[in-house]
Simulated scan of single mutants.
Amino acid sequence: MPRYYFRIAHGSYSGTSDVAFDLQDDDEAWKEMTRVCADLVSGITRALKPDSDWQMELLDDNKKALFRIRLLAEKV
Rank of each mutant, 00 (worst) to 15 (best):
22 D>L: 04
29 A>K: 02
13 Y>S: 11
27 D>E: 08
5 Y>S: 06
33 M>T: 11
27 D>R: 12
12 S>I: 11
7 R>M: 08
20 A>R: 01
29 A>H: 04
16 T>G: 03
19 V>T: 11
28 E>P: 02
6 F>P: 01
14 S>R: 04
15 G>W: 09
7 R>K: 15
4 Y>W: 04
17 S>Q: 11
13 Y>P: 00
7 R>Q: 15
15 G>R: 14
19 V>L: 07
25 D>N: 15
6 F>T: 01
24 Q>C: 08
24 Q>M: 12
15 G>L: 11
26 D>H: 04
3 R>W: 00
9 A>H: 05
17 S>A: 14
22 D>M: 07
25 D>I: 12
9 A>T: 14
2 P>A: 08
10 H>K: 14
12 S>M: 06
15 G>P: 01
9 A>M: 05
1 M>T: 06
15 G>M: 09
27 D>F: 12
8 I>Y: 12
17 S>P: 10
4 Y>F: 15
19 V>A: 06
1 M>L: 06
28 E>H: 14
17 S>V: 13
26 D>V: 05
24 Q>I: 14
18 D>M: 13
14 S>H: 00
8 I>K: 09
8 I>S: 10
14 S>A: 14
19 V>E: 04
18 D>V: 13
25 D>T: 10
15 G>E: 11
13 Y>M: 13
32 E>L: 07
1 M>S: 03
11 G>E: 07
4 Y>C: 01
24 Q>L: 14
27 D>L: 10
19 V>H: 04
7 R>I: 02
12 S>P: 03
32 E>M: 12
22 D>A: 12
13 Y>N: 09
24 Q>K: 15
32 E>Y: 09
23 L>D: 01
20 A>S: 15
29 A>E: 04
30 W>K: 11
26 D>Y: 00
10 H>N: 11
14 S>T: 12
27 D>P: 00
27 D>G: 07
33 M>E: 02
23 L>F: 06
1 M>G: 05
9 A>R: 15
15 G>C: 09
4 Y>P: 00
24 Q>D: 08
10 H>S: 13
24 Q>A: 12
23 L>M: 10
13 Y>C: 06
21 F>P: 00
2 P>G: 00
2 P>Q: 00
11 G>I: 14
19 V>S: 07
11 G>P: 13
12 S>V: 13
